[in-house]
């Protein structure tokens, strides 16, 4: 008999107390139980990066995180990137550079890019490419994405 587990976690700056089944992934929890469907379900094997979120500031594949693992941790999803109606500078830059094609990889790309810029405000092109190397784009839009990250205004990167 599978027992459920009570966890407390912060998701997009909001505290949650949740009862989860241990075989639930963070991706399932976000999408199916919390309605945060901005995080995409791609390969569910850690290969495509569409489900990338930040856990304590680090980019991780939410399809490979078990829900009980986020107990006491801080989660940021794509829904928490903008400040209300004000888009994050990375989001603005993606729009400016036409870095969004079909859009399926975009939330994961943005979260990987955010984790890079949080550590390194002026990365080289190689550092950007490395940071998104775990995110697949099948519209072959990498160049625009790389440009968008490189040209996100440093002064606005604080948020």
């Amino acid at each position: 008999m599978m027992k459920s587990i009570v966890i407390t976690t912060t998701i997009n700056k909001r505290k949650h107390e949740l009862e989860v089944h241990p075989n639930t992934t963070l991706l399932d929890l976000l999408r199916d139980e919390l309605g945060l469907t901005g995080t995409k379900r791609g390969c569910e094997a850690g290969e495509c990066g569409a489900c990338t979120i930040l856990m304590n500031g680090q980019a991780v594949n939410s399809c490979l995180v078990l829900a009980p693992q986020i107990d006491g941790q801080e989660i940021l999803t794509i829904e928490g990137l903008a400040d209300g109606d004000k888009l994050h500078p990375l989001q603005e830059s993606f729009l400016d550079h036409d870095a969004v094609h079909c859009g399926f990889c975009t939330p994961g790309m943005l979260m990987s890019a955010k984790s890079l810029l949080d550590r390194n405000a002026s990365p080289t092109e190689l550092e950007v490419r490395t940071a998104i190397s775990g995110n697949l784009c099948r519209c072959t839009g990498y160049q625009q994405i790389v440009d968008a990250v490189l040209e996100t205004e440093p002064v606005k990167r604080e948020t």
Binding site: G46, A59, V60, N61, S112, S115, S133, G134
Partner: peptide, 9 residues
């Protein structure tokens, strides 16, 4: 090894 996400995990 692997990708940035997987190396974080």
């Amino acid at each position: 090894a692997a990708s940035p996400q997987l190396r974080n995990q």
